[in-house]
Design a protein around this nucleic acid. Structure first.
Lengths: 95, 95
DNA sequence: ACCATTTGCTACGCTTTATGTAGCACTCAT
DNA sequence: ATGAGTGCTACATAAAGCGTAGCAAATGGT
């Protein structure tokens, strides 16, 4: 299950999520991702580009056709997330 | 998108994936996850339990009802993964 | 040509997180 | 009591991430 290793890395899901509907420049994407350090962002984008999931176009980074299916799944994930946040036990205060 | 932070942590997707159809003991789960260090596994399981997604039953750790929907999404993710592995550009050799 | 702005991206020192091994406390069967 | 299984923790080391600063190239304005 190679995708779990790729997409299970920190920031990966977030990055793909932020690119879901419009291209973003490196800096804009960084801003969307809570100003993740450019070092990590670059590493992730490099991995995503090598995997053929993201490409750098004229308007910034955008998901490739290959990535569309993943986008749908991410949408379902966030749908599920909303339901989960309503039903989950503890309101997520840390200790 | 709180779920992205929870589930985007290292090993999280893998853990949920390994628990997809049968309960696993702490040690068995650890073995399935490439012998991830017990420190991290315990941290992740604690987070998943606090989130109400996983519980410790008589036969080991298992996803809760709340988690079922997520399981379906994970299945789709692995479906997508199989397609992706056929069509992706580089055969994933590291450098 | 010159300057300011924006682009993608890298370098560096520091903190956080993960790893790997060992082992504790507990339960249960023998 | 012994041995094997359980969940989980401690500790030192290695890896990953963070935050800030800044570089080189491209763009637009004067």
């Amino acid at each position: 299950m190679a995708v779990l290793e790729l997409v299970g890395q920190k920031w990966m899901l977030r990055i793909l999520w932020e690119l879901r509907d419009a291209p973003l420049t490196f800096r804009a994407l960084r801003a969307r991702c809570d100003n993740v350090s450019p070092t990590v962002l670059n590493q992730r984008l490099a991995a995503l580009r090598e995997a053929g999931l993201v490409e750098l176009g004229d308007d910034g980074y955008e998901p490739t056709e290959l990535c569309r299916g993943l986008g749908d799944i991410l949408l379902q994930l966030t749908d599920w997330s909303r339901r989960w946040e309503k039903e989950r036990p503890a309101p997520a205060d840390e200790d």
